[in-house]
Design a protein around this nucleic acid. Structure first.
Lengths: 108, 108
DNA sequence: TTGACATATCTCCATATCGCTATATGATGT
DNA sequence: ACATCATATAGCGATATGGAGATATGTCAA
């Protein structure tokens, strides 16, 4: 087998820098494809495909106005990432705290 | 070009579920390779390779005791992920942040 | 030294990916 | 109907990947 599909979850979708840039931009407010193309200087077909990946994992949603497709972030879909990172950091800090305690006890 | 290397940054390293599982386990305390193999039921060569990737992006560090290699998490290396996610969510709305605060106060 | 244990490395293969370019779909206004 | 604008999709090539298994490196113990 190869690497997991970029569309398999938020972790994989977000591993690509272009897609993070798109999400970062969209987090400031919704935008049409052409605006993303212009601001991020990424060729239009690639923007569309990146948006397709992000749509598949529900990180962005789309609304059509005339011939323009307006995309917006759905940050709820980042929750698994958020939660996992938090779990790791929580455990890690806890161990550091315990280490602090140990060190404190060694200091009379 | 293909996808960015798994070793290029924490985002890519963490995109793989096996590696997240390893980090989650290690966040509970350091462990030798054999313990990871046994607990996660992943063949030893693959654990070693996953650990190699995590080492490359500094998400884990290693200490050798006799013939055992003891790995531990370096959660600092998760900071870019943490910060980026928070940036997105902060812009999205403050609901999650406030929820975090509430949860943090409930967790003494 | 020999043998057992612990971990790392190497090879093979199937596959999904990204960037690129050309083209298809779809909506608008005349 | 037509030309135009806005977005999506298809085909291609190069490449790194993860799983599997065999093997190499390295360490201890008798």
């Amino acid at each position: 087998m190869a690497r997991a599909a970029t569309t398999s979850d938020a972790f994989n979708a977000v591993a690509e820098e272009c897609r993070r840039d798109i999400l970062t931009m969209l987090s400031g407010g919704e935008a049409a494809v052409g605006e993303i193309v212009e601001q991020l200087r990424i060729p239009q077909p690639q923007v569309s495909r990146h948006l397709g990946v992000l749509r598949t994992v529900d990180l962005v949603r789309c609304r059509t106005v005339g011939r323009r497709h307006i995309y917006r972030v759905n940050a709820e879909a980042l929750r698994p990432v958020h939660d996992w990172v938090r779990t790791i950091e929580a455990q890690w800090n806890e161990r550091l705290d315990r280490l602090d305690d140990v060190l404190a006890e060694l200091q009379p």
